[in-house]
Amino acid sequence: MQLKTSSLEFERFGSVYDKPVSLEKTGMICRDWHMIAKRSINQLYHFDCEVRLEMQSGMAALVVGESLDVNKLEAFAIHRYVKLKPGLYFNLVAVTSNITCKLITISDYNYSLDALTPAYMFRRILPRIRISEILGYYYNIRNSGYVFNGESHNYFELTYVDRGQLLTDVEGTCYTIKEKELMIYGPGQFHTQNIAKGDSCSYVTIIFDMETVVYDVESSHYELLLNKVFTYDKKIYTLIKAFVSESTSEIPYMNSLMLCLLQETVIRLLQSEFIGRKSEKPVTTARQHYEDELLERILAYIDETIYEPITIAEICQKFSMSRSSLQILFKENMDMPPKKYINELKLEKSRQMICENRYTISEIALMLGFNSIHYFSRAFTQKYNMAPSEYAKTIYKT
């Protein structure tokens, strides 16, 4: 998550205040600072006195550090007016297309503008790919011996096999797409499709227009999606199923949601190249429905009894299942063991209770069944990178 200038982490650099400085009363001087959006900073300001920054329009991030070491610079979203301590190195990054900020200091100031090597790169949250339009989507049911002699076009084409298996040739290379697997053909790629004798196949075809939005040399290109079969993945399966369901819903904004589902599918596929893929066994629709319903009831029970000491044995007894079955259910659907899920939920509840400011930290730890205040504080710090008391200060301060 991004840090703000009102956070505890910012206090070693300065503080925030609510009312603008009166130049007449303080005798301070001011200059207007105009800036357009850019990704890099190659110079830093260094004042020997206190500096105040008052945003007038737009949104900006403050990049600040105690030295010219680019690896030790920190970025903070500007929240309210900012007072910087003397001797810091800093600059602003325009997050919106342009900003205006007042830089206020004493009349007897002294500053330098120092070169930063290498330049500091600010990571703006921008899309790397954009699906502009879905040109067609079809559910195909093909019988034994079906042959499609092939085509190429200027668009992307996703083929997801729902049942059976599909043989395809892409630019002279043969692939087999099995049940719950998919493949993407790129613009200009000649591809054929056919069904082997004795088999049948049902598959989804989605044709779409996509562009890669390249902002820097690190951007990933769509070549990562091509010339490979993506094996079964539960998240992809869920997205495709939701896409098919939404395509027949006739509910307002269904088209927008279909675009979002397809874009998330493509992003998940790109991410899989960096985080690795899990080898998961496809499950039947009936089994998945049973697991979803059972998991929903278990999660509801945990949420209802979160203020009581919950044990794994108690859950297993209530829902008539073995400990190993419960572990598998959570691992496949929640990507974590049940004990960890319970602890994570307790910590999230504790955070909510701190925000409500009705109980002390010790009372919250006791109410949620933590063995001691020290254990609770350690677990909270590990999850949120600050102690409960520190978190409370940030809430009450803002």
Rank of each mutant, 00 (worst) to 15 (best):
Y232L: 06
A75V: 14
D69P: 08
L262P: 04
S152D: 11
E24D: 06
T265A: 07
L368N: 05
E344S: 15
N255P: 03
L167T: 03
S362Y: 05
L23E: 11
I29L: 11
F47G: 07
Y137C: 09
A60P: 03
Q193H: 09
L329D: 11
I312M: 12
Y109P: 01
T192S: 07
A313K: 11
Q165F: 12
P118S: 02
S322Q: 10
V70L: 04
R378V: 11
F13G: 07
Y290Q: 15
I306S: 03
L68H: 10
F122T: 07
M1H: 08
A387W: 05
I312N: 09
Y120Q: 09
L347C: 01
F274H: 08
G136W: 04
S112W: 05
S112P: 12
N140S: 10
Y253C: 12
F190C: 05
I364G: 07
S22I: 03
D209C: 02
S220H: 03
L368H: 05
H374V: 04
F370S: 04
G145E: 11
S22A: 06
R287Y: 05
A60Y: 03
F13C: 08
V147H: 12
Y109H: 08
A365S: 13
A313P: 02
Y301T: 11
E356G: 05
A392L: 15
L326Q: 09
S132R: 10
A242D: 11
V63N: 10
I177D: 08
L259G: 12
A60E: 07
L113P: 06
A313M: 04
K102N: 13
L135R: 13
T212G: 00
A196F: 06
P252S: 10
C30E: 12
F376E: 12
H191A: 00
R123K: 05
R287W: 03
L182V: 07
C355M: 15
P337R: 09
V204I: 14
T96W: 04
E363P: 05
A61M: 08
L8C: 09
Q165A: 04
N140A: 07
K235Y: 02
I206P: 07
A286D: 14
M254C: 12
I36E: 15
Y222V: 00
Y391N: 00
A242I: 00
T212Q: 00
L68W: 04
A77F: 13
E314W: 13
Y222S: 00
I361C: 08
N255T: 09
E348D: 06
F208L: 00
Y222M: 03
V82C: 01
L261T: 05
F156I: 03
E74V: 10
L368P: 03
I361A: 14
L113A: 11
E151A: 14
N194E: 12
L44Y: 09
R39C: 01
L23D: 03
C355I: 14
S200C: 14
Q317I: 07
S377A: 15
T381L: 01
M321P: 07
